[in-house]
Design a protein around this nucleic acid. Structure first.
Lengths: 186, 186
DNA sequence: GTGGTATGAATGAAAG
DNA sequence: CTTTCATTCATACCAC
């Protein structure tokens, strides 16, 4: 594949290594895409946990500037990071709750061991439960900018009806289960 | 980072052994990550072969629910399975087609468009028709360090100017850089 | 014990 | 915002 990814990969550092220390030498001197330092991740996560979800352009620039202290970073990285983090947070949340709902009928495997898999580990390792707590420093920005989503939330009153998409034969066939034959739609 | 391993698998069954029959194999799978049962793999593979590539969320949920009969499984696992399977098939395929040039035509694929800058990140993100943004919060420091581009610079962010160029606002926040704490300016 | 391979999991980047 | 793609990390398992 061609790499004209605008790129440079001068930074030989970092990997998702671990040491909080520096961007240490990493396995992957491989470049091509941003590989955040632990500190960078920490700061970003911290900001996210503080309630920042969709930083404005200004905020992105500032964050990026600050994080460049720890290593190479661009604004778009920050942008993507927040987008991904937010999206995956939601996705995960959705998926987990679905799992817990549908999870209620397989307690007996009758194979060689009953599992008793605890299906209530519900918490994220990450305390995602923090509502929209906005730290006061965040409020230094205009409240009606995009710093908080009081406005966008209003559009989300209706549940993401996301569940009523297409009803293909496939999904139809999976609905009523004759157990093993449930896969007969194949 | 923010992923809980979600679990432990007490299931001693399954292995990617090969008998398509029972989930007998049982090398005594340790755990840490999902280890699909033979039946689970079989079903997933069949689904894949029947044309299913990227199941929607509800499909994933149904599949996962069905497969939970054979052992512990989560929606996440189904999601990842399809993701990986598709990607790896594509990868193999790509590798094959690259040196597929049996004839003298070099129609290499090169479906990699050059990714220069995130053209999507032009700031159009989600402006929900903000009539006017009234800054009613006190500005401890001017946001428009470079001028009045609070609105306009949304359309240019992808420069490689990630190096800090403003110092006015920042100098406020950091008397002396305690590193992490420098982001308090947000 | 070491290395290779298959594959689960994660995530940056981008497309839709 | 949601979904998909591509790459990489991590781990289980097998072979030697």
């Amino acid at each position: 594949m061609d790499e004209n990814m605008s790129g440079f990969c001068i930074k030989a550092a970092s990997v998702r290594d671990n040491n909080g220390g520096g961007n240490g030498g990493g396995t992957g001197t491989k470049c091509g895409r941003w590989n955040p330092t632990s500190e960078q991740v920490k700061v970003l996560t911290d900001l996210f946990r503080s309630g920042l979800r969709t930083p404005s352009t200004d905020q992105i620039q500032k964050i990026s500037s600050q994080l460049s202290f720890y290593g190479k970073i661009e604004s778009k990285n920050v942008f993507y990071w927040f987008q991904n983090h937010k999206a995956r947070e939601r996705h995960k949340r959705r998926r987990v709750s679905i799992d817990h709902d549908t999870d209620s009928h397989h307690h007996f495997i009758l194979r060689n061991q009953n599992i008793s898999s605890p299906k209530h580990y519900n918490g994220e390792v990450n305390e995602v439960s923090e509502p929209e707590r906005v730290i006061e420093t965040l409020q230094l920005f205009p409240l009606n900018s995009f710093g908080d989503q009081t406005e966008t939330d209003r559009f989300r009153l209706h549940a993401n009806d996301y569940q009523c998409k297409e009803t293909t034969a496939l999904s139809y066939a999976m609905d009523h289960p004759p157990l093993d034959l449930r896969l007969s739609f194949l």
